[in-house]
Amino acid sequence: MSRTERISSDSSMRRLSLSLAAAALPVGFLGVAHSAVWVLGVGAWLLIAAVLIELVYRP
């Protein structure tokens, strides 16, 4: 694997993790605002997925 391939995959995983975390915030806020526990749960799982990607896929 060349260095450019590794950098490209690192940045794509970083972008995925950041987009999951960014999506978790408004979804969680909507869950709290509408008192919908399942929406809040979806936001929590998005945040958990973002953290797990950061922990497992450390460049």
Rank of each mutant, 00 (worst) to 15 (best):
residue 12 S to I: 06
residue 30 L to I: 00
residue 12 S to C: 05
residue 37 V to I: 10
residue 21 A to R: 04
residue 28 G to V: 00
residue 16 L to Q: 12
residue 15 R to E: 09
residue 35 S to V: 00
residue 17 S to H: 12
residue 43 G to M: 01
residue 32 V to Q: 13
residue 32 V to T: 14
residue 55 L to S: 14
residue 18 L to I: 02
residue 19 S to G: 03
residue 53 I to D: 08
residue 41 G to C: 06
residue 19 S to T: 02
residue 8 S to F: 13
residue 31 G to M: 05
residue 31 G to N: 08
residue 59 P to I: 00
residue 33 A to V: 00
residue 14 R to D: 13
residue 1 M to I: 04
residue 3 R to E: 11
residue 56 V to N: 10
residue 53 I to G: 06
residue 24 A to L: 01
residue 40 L to E: 04
residue 24 A to P: 03
residue 43 G to W: 01
residue 37 V to K: 14
residue 17 S to K: 04
residue 19 S to H: 06
residue 39 V to T: 10
residue 2 S to L: 05
residue 2 S to N: 15
residue 30 L to V: 00
residue 21 A to S: 13
residue 16 L to A: 13
residue 43 G to S: 04
residue 42 V to T: 03
residue 59 P to L: 06
residue 13 M to D: 12
residue 43 G to V: 00
residue 8 S to C: 10
residue 25 L to S: 10
residue 45 W to H: 05
residue 55 L to T: 07
residue 19 S to A: 08
residue 41 G to D: 05
residue 7 I to A: 15
residue 53 I to E: 07
residue 6 R to A: 11
residue 58 R to N: 11
residue 56 V to L: 13
residue 37 V to L: 14
residue 13 M to V: 00
residue 30 L to Y: 05
residue 40 L to C: 07
residue 24 A to G: 04
residue 5 E to I: 07
residue 25 L to K: 15
residue 51 V to Y: 08
residue 29 F to D: 09
residue 51 V to E: 07
residue 59 P to C: 08
residue 5 E to Y: 10
residue 49 A to P: 12
residue 12 S to H: 12
residue 43 G to N: 02
residue 22 A to W: 02
residue 32 V to W: 12
residue 32 V to C: 06
residue 42 V to C: 03
residue 22 A to G: 11
residue 42 V to Q: 03
residue 51 V to W: 09
residue 3 R to K: 15
residue 4 T to H: 09
residue 42 V to K: 01
residue 53 I to A: 11
residue 48 I to C: 08
residue 41 G to P: 01
residue 58 R to E: 09
residue 52 L to P: 14
residue 5 E to D: 14
residue 48 I to Q: 07
residue 19 S to V: 02
residue 31 G to L: 06
residue 8 S to G: 15
residue 48 I to T: 04
residue 7 I to P: 06
residue 39 V to I: 12
residue 9 S to A: 10
residue 40 L to D: 01
residue 34 H to M: 06
residue 4 T to W: 06
residue 4 T to Q: 08
residue 14 R to N: 14
residue 21 A to Y: 04
residue 22 A to C: 03
residue 48 I to H: 09
residue 55 L to N: 14
residue 10 D to M: 05
residue 5 E to C: 09
residue 54 E to S: 12
residue 7 I to H: 13
residue 32 V to D: 12
residue 34 H to D: 04
residue 41 G to M: 03
residue 56 V to G: 07
residue 10 D to P: 01
residue 11 S to Q: 09
residue 14 R to K: 15
residue 37 V to S: 15
residue 8 S to W: 14
residue 43 G to F: 00
residue 13 M to W: 13
residue 52 L to F: 13
residue 16 L to M: 13
residue 50 A to L: 03
residue 30 L to E: 01
residue 30 L to R: 05
residue 25 L to A: 14
residue 36 A to G: 10
residue 10 D to G: 09
residue 34 H to R: 15
residue 5 E to P: 03
residue 34 H to C: 05
residue 40 L to H: 04
residue 12 S to Q: 14
residue 39 V to P: 02
residue 6 R to K: 07
residue 50 A to H: 04
residue 59 P to G: 14
residue 2 S to R: 11
residue 56 V to A: 08
residue 47 L to Q: 11
residue 20 L to R: 11
residue 38 W to L: 10
residue 45 W to D: 02
residue 33 A to D: 07
residue 48 I to P: 02
residue 39 V to E: 04
